[in-house]
């Protein structure tokens, strides 16, 4: 019994089991030859592990898929029987794939022209222009509403967000302007009031806004807001602004920085 023969016998032994083996000398060889023993061990282990694996069962999906595919291919066959008349058509028409380049160019030009024509007819009509304008207005109205609701939030960060939204508006309605002026005068947070000054600056081309900003100066206690308002009023270059600044200087409690700013402001206006 040599190793060569032994190897041939291993599959048999695996199936029948070593113990049940009829031949004593196989066992003897295995025990005496370490190389064969090792091989036997490895294969035996793999064999038992394979036994642990559950047997693969075809799922219910398999059956369904099979019949679906079968049905599909049957239908295809049936369709193929009907095709001949289509092939007739194809024979009648010229094959555009092999048409002259000039023909292809003409087709492309035709598509472009038709596209332009449709676009011109759709976009050029006055009614649509009106629709866009209305849409724009609608968006702006919506933004104003969002700003208004943000401005009445208890969180200062939300109010700042509302103020920064107003910078995108072209045409704020009176309610929003009134709200902005109210924030400028009464908001508990200095940061928000300062931001309101910047927001109102964008609408300072309105006489009403300029007047309200000028009037607000005397109501501000924070030096930061006072300075921001002074800077703004200097940019208006109005006599009324100079008068408001002079009035501010009467305030004995005014801090030096603000006093200096107001003085230089007056000299710039006059």
């Amino acid at each position: 019994m040599n190793c060569q023969e032994m190897k041939k016998m291993i599959p048999d032994l695996l199936q029948n089991g070593l113990e049940s083996g009829q031949d004593e000398h196989y066992r003897e060889h295995l025990h005496s030859c370490p190389a064969c023993w090792q091989e036997w061990q490895d294969l035996h282990e793999t064999w038992t592990r394979l036994g642990i694996l559950p047997e693969e069962q075809p799922g219910p999906e398999l059956r369904r898929n099979f019949y679906r595919q079968l049905e599909a291919s049957r239908r295809e066959m049936a369709a193929a029987k009907v095709t001949p008349w289509r092939q007739h058509w194809r024979r009648l028409l010229p094959d555009w794939r092999y048409a002259f380049p000039a023909m292809r160019l003409a087709a492309a030009v035709l598509v472009v022209v038709v596209g332009f024509g449709i676009g011109f007819m759709a976009g050029g009509s006055r009614e649509n222009g009106g629709k866009f304008a209305r849409l724009n207005k609608e968006v702006e109205r919506l933004q104003q509403q969002v700003s208004l609701s943000l401005l009445s939030q208890p969180s200062a960060a939300a109010r700042l967000q509302g103020l920064s939204m107003t910078s995108r508006l072209q045409d704020p309605d009176p309610t929003l302007l009134k709200m902005l002026l109210d924030v400028l005068d009464n908001d508990p947070s200095v940061n928000v009031r300062l931001s309101a000054v910047d927001a109102l600056y964008l609408f300072a081309d309105r006489e009403q806004v300029r007047a309200a900003l000028t009037a607000s100066l005397s109501r501000q206690a924070s030096p930061l807001v006072q300075i921001a308002l002074i800077d703004l009023m200097v940019s208006f270059k109005e006599k009324r602004a100079a008068a408001a600044l002079k009035k501010l200087l009467d305030d004995k409690q005014l801090i030096p920085e603000v006093r200096q700013r107001a003085k230089s402001g007056i000299s710039q206006i006059l």
């Binding site: 960060a157 939300a158 700042l160 920064s164 200095v190 940061n191 928000v192 300062l194 030096p223 930061l224």
Partner: peptide, 11 residues
């Protein structure tokens, strides 16, 4: 990434 931040001082 959402809410504005604001840090301000005079001196």
């Amino acid at each position: 990434g959402k809410k504005p931040l604001s840090l301000i001082t005079l001196n």
